[in-house]
Amino acid sequence: MKKSVNKTITIRDIALSCQVSPSTVSNILSGKRQVNSAAGKKVLAYAEKIGYQKIHQQRFKKAIHLILFRKHKLILCDTPVFSALVTALDNCCKAQGYALSLSYIDALTLGEKATQKTISQIISDPTTPILLLATEMSEQDFHLFENAKAPIMVIGNLLPKVPFNIIDTDNFEAGRIAVQHLIDKGHTHIGIISSSVPFDSAKKRKQGALYALQEHDFPIKAEDILYLSPFAEETSDNMTQVIQNRKEQFPTAFFAINDYLALGAMHALIQHGFSIPKDISLIGMDNMPFDCLVSPKLSTIEAPIEETARQAVLRLIALTQETEQYIMKSYMGVKLVERDSVLDLNTCK
């Protein structure tokens, strides 16, 4: 007779069963979101049915608090990359014997005073170390966390003057590698597709792309840097407007600072008769799962999400055990994922 295998139920399992995102499940189970929707009630009912909360409380005596600081609601959203990061952090915390609770701080909705009050309440707890997802934060926003009683580990947005431990993707190198790949494929007229909402990672990716062009003495015209809406449903419409108003010839290739922008641009270009990559090549950033579901499959730059999560959790736990705390800021490397959306002009000569 086969022995029964006790499978550990994870947040991702509950998310799949309830057809919601892992971050939504984490938010509901941690009590950080009011449950007034059918989906929320379904998550709680399913968790109670399988005994998740009871098992969870018995297994973990310590906790780590994940804070998602939002100012635009455009960057931190339920994208596959975001969900993968939350899941990876949850798994890494559990592996170290910690439960992960999650809070959204929506500064845009709360307003300045309510945001300060909410953060003050969170950082007054000396027993729960904090992971701070800071993609949407400015240098000024970090001052709100300076009096934290527990250690803080920041994920994303590595700024030189911020007095916290930070781990971030090497976004400059991501932009440089992407454009260098286009250059290696024989492209000399290269454009950049960036976000109309300014944020640090987009800025650094664009800087890396410009550096690669300047390194090869390739000129970049202002009209070849496009700024499209980061809203998935608006990106294609924005690109359509660019196509309709464009008088100059398009570059033979574009680097888009994320895959959403690349795919939105691709959709609009194809709708207007352009062939990808024959007429225009595209490369993105993030390596989202649906990059392989489009035609042509999107070439992209990938950041190591699981390793970033692991390093962030391990560093935060180490900070709770150190008497003399020093600040460490580090970048995670990236890699090229080559698929079908970039034409090799060297073979066309």
Rank of each mutant, 00 (worst) to 15 (best):
A95M: 11
E173I: 12
Y52R: 01
G284Y: 01
Q116V: 13
T109C: 10
I9H: 12
R59W: 08
M239S: 04
S4W: 13
G186N: 04
R176M: 08
Y331S: 09
R176V: 11
N258S: 05
S103D: 15
D168S: 14
L269P: 07
F69Y: 13
N238T: 09
G264W: 02
A268P: 02
Q57F: 11
R176K: 15
K94L: 06
K117D: 15
L102Y: 05
S281E: 01
G191M: 02
E248R: 03
M332W: 11
P80K: 06
I119H: 04
L314D: 12
C18V: 07
I193F: 03
P160K: 00
K71D: 03
G264I: 03
T235W: 01
Q241G: 09
K71A: 07
G156N: 11
Q96G: 00
F142T: 00
I327Y: 09
F250K: 05
A95C: 10
L66C: 08
F60S: 00
K149F: 03
P198K: 04
I317R: 00
L131M: 08
S138R: 06
A148Y: 01
Q121G: 05
I119Q: 01
S4C: 10
K7I: 14
K54S: 12
T323N: 14
I192M: 06
H56T: 02
E173K: 15
F254W: 01
T135K: 14
I276K: 00
T109A: 07
C348R: 15
E324Y: 10
S196V: 03
I190E: 07
R339V: 01
S23E: 12
I317H: 00
C18L: 06
I220V: 15
A107T: 00
S295A: 09
R205G: 11
T24L: 08
I177E: 10
L269E: 01
T118Y: 10
D78K: 11
Q19H: 14
L144F: 11
C18G: 03
